[in-house]
């Protein structure tokens, strides 16, 4: 089924990769400029009418963000994730709120948490969870959360922190230590 779908899509789009995780889940890779057309094709002709979520992950080694648009087909009960790699420098992406109105909420969150801009997405510049945040977007991997924490919040004396990996190795699973 998914292979047939890939065949049909390949006639119009340059699909760079396809991963089938299991019977109900597959992932496509697509170029940035083709994303909106692909999503429209999937929504209007292939039955993937539901946008479950949009997420981003930070691939700082490749200097890229990977955006994932997760779609769901109610007829076949199939989930299809569409991956797009975008540059980490001045990260920006087309807004898909004309396709799914709920998308602008996700895009607003991504703008706040990762600093990915979605021009023309409604209310994208408003605060989402963080009110008055003036630092680097906190979900970026080069954001040092411990340092930020030390600068802004005070510790209470007497707190002991054990390094997790060491604790597990020594105290909990001594026989399975690496």
């Amino acid at each position: 089924m998914i292979e047939a779908l890939k065949q049909r899509l390949s006639e119009h789009f340059q699909l760079t990769n396809l991963t089938i995780k299991n019977a109900g889940l597959a992932f496509l890779w697509v170029e940035k400029h083709e994303l909106e057309m692909l999503l429209r094709q999937l929504r209007d002709f292939e039955g993937y009418t539901h946008l479950s979520f949009i997420i981003a992950s930070d691939h700082i080694e490749k200097n890229q963000f990977k955006l994932t648009y997760m779609l769901h087909n109610y007829d076949t009960k199939h989930d299809l994730g569409v991956h797009v790699d975008i540059s980490r420098v001045n990260a920006s992406m087309h807004s898909i709120h004309p396709l799914w109105a709920q998308a602008w909420t996700y895009q607003r969150e991504l703008k706040e948490m990762y600093g990915i801009d979605f021009p023309e997405s409604p209310r994208v510049d408003e605060d989402f969870c963080l009110e008055g945040w003036d630092d680097m977007p906190p979900m970026r991997r080069d954001f040092d959360t411990v340092k930020y924490c030390e600068e802004h919040f005070d510790d209470r004396d007497g707190r002991a922190t054990e390094e997790n990996r060491q604790t597990m190795k020594v105290n909990i699973y001594p026989e399975r230590g690496e």
Binding site: C129, L130, D135, T145, C149, D154, R156, R159
Partner: peptide, 19 residues
């Protein structure tokens, strides 16, 4: 609320409410 608990390194969670 006492000392941050498992959120001791969270950028968005205060550690000591008594401040």
């Amino acid at each position: 609320s006492l000392n941050g608990g498992m959120y001791w390194d969270s950028y968005n969670t205060i550690k000591r409410i008594d401040q």
